[in-house]
């Protein structure tokens, strides 16, 4: 269990992490989602006692990180796969970490085997590919057989096979009852791995919810309608108590999965329909909408491609 209480980090005037309060619970994969620069890595460094919080508090199983005896046996973390001395072999890198926490030597061979690096264990880390470096970082996290695991953007730069491996690893670690906290800037990645979701933007907490709830609240399903007899259709729907949103370009939208009901209504009143199609907004759109105001640097894309226009009718739902 990781508990954050009002955790904040300021660099001069700039607020990187702004009063974060949430808990990461055992037995599930908790996704830590936010756009680049949202403060995810800074938060993770504060959890590990590497960066000093400007305010607030973070505890691991009720204790501060520095109070943990042999911390690698409580919490294992992969922050940056490149944070290895390139001249040192994978084996010696893990050995020095094991020795500092009184972890038996045989664990080094075990975790090397788990991540599939046994054959290159004696090779210098500077010759490693990004994927191998990522595996070495994960081996280091697993070294102390900790109850809590934390991974910062673990699938970045991995090939599909590596991504698949990491997803399964995280799920199996959570299934063993461990606490798994994993960050990403990709909603689609989280949708595949996380059971619970913590979303931040510009250092602030935007959502702390279970994945099914997030999907239910944010993956808006609606019906898209086009009709040459627009006014008549609007009247008909209005009489039946169905709320319609005008989406521009002559397109009408109705929340919920009421396509059959609307079709029957239109038939009964003799309204011609050119289109009647159930739609589903993607989670990626929901995430972009949620963090739209919190993104530090906007790319000025072609209007119409951005998330804003698509979602004008359902602002405020995101929370």
């Amino acid at each position: 269990m990781i508990e954050l209480a009002g955790l904040s980090k300021r660099y001069g005037d700039k607020v990187a992490v702004d009063r974060l309060t949430f808990a990461v619970r055992p037995g599930i994969v908790t996704g830590f989602l936010g756009p680049n620069g949202a403060g995810k890595s800074t938060t993770m460094r504060m959890i590990l006692g590497l960066d000093h919080p400007s305010a607030g508090d973070v505890r691991i199983d009720g204790r501060h990180y520095a109070q943990l005896k042999d911390p690698l046996t409580y919490i294992g973390a992969l922050l940056d796969a490149k944070a290895v001395h390139g001249g040192r072999s994978a084996y010696n890198h893990l050995l020095c970490l094991a020795q500092s926490n009184g972890i038996p030597k045989r664990r080094v061979a075990e975790v090397l085997d788990t991540v599939g690096l046994t054959t290159v264990a004696r090779k210098k880390a500077k010759g490693f590919s990004l994927g191998m470096g990522q595996r070495l970082g994960i081996a280091a996290a697993l070294l102390g057989d900790p109850r809590i695991l934390m991974f910062d953007e673990p699938v970045n730069g991995l090939d599909p096979e590596g991504i698949h491996w990491i997803r399964n690893l995280m799920k199996s670690l959570a299934a063993q009852g461990r606490t798994v906290f994993v960050s990403s800037h990709l909603m689609s990645e989280m949708a595949l791995t996380a059971d619970h979701l913590v979303v931040i933007g510009q250092g602030r907490l935007l959502a702390d919810t279970s994945m099914p709830d997030f999907i239910r609240q944010n993956s808006r399903s609606y019906v898209r309608i086009r009709s040459p007899q627009r006014e008549r259709l609007l009247d008909t729907l209005h009489e039946s108590g169905i709320t319609v949103v005008e989406a521009g370009g002559g397109v009408l939208e109705v929340d919920g999965g009421k396509a059959e009901q609307i079709g029957e209504l239109a038939a009964r009143h003799g309204v011609v329909l050119h289109e009647l199609s159930p739609q589903q907004a993607s989670l990626e759109e929901a995430f972009m909408q949620l963090t739209a105001e919190a993104v530090e640097y906007h790319a000025h894309a072609d209007p119409g491609l951005g998330p804003q226009d698509r979602s004008a009718g359902w602002k405020g739902r995101a929370r």
Partner: peptide, 13 residues
């Protein structure tokens, strides 16, 4: 090398 973050996570004192 950035190893300092791994080292201090292992030895926070």
């Amino acid at each position: 090398t950035g190893m300092i973050r791994v080292s201090l996570a292992a030895v926070p004192r």
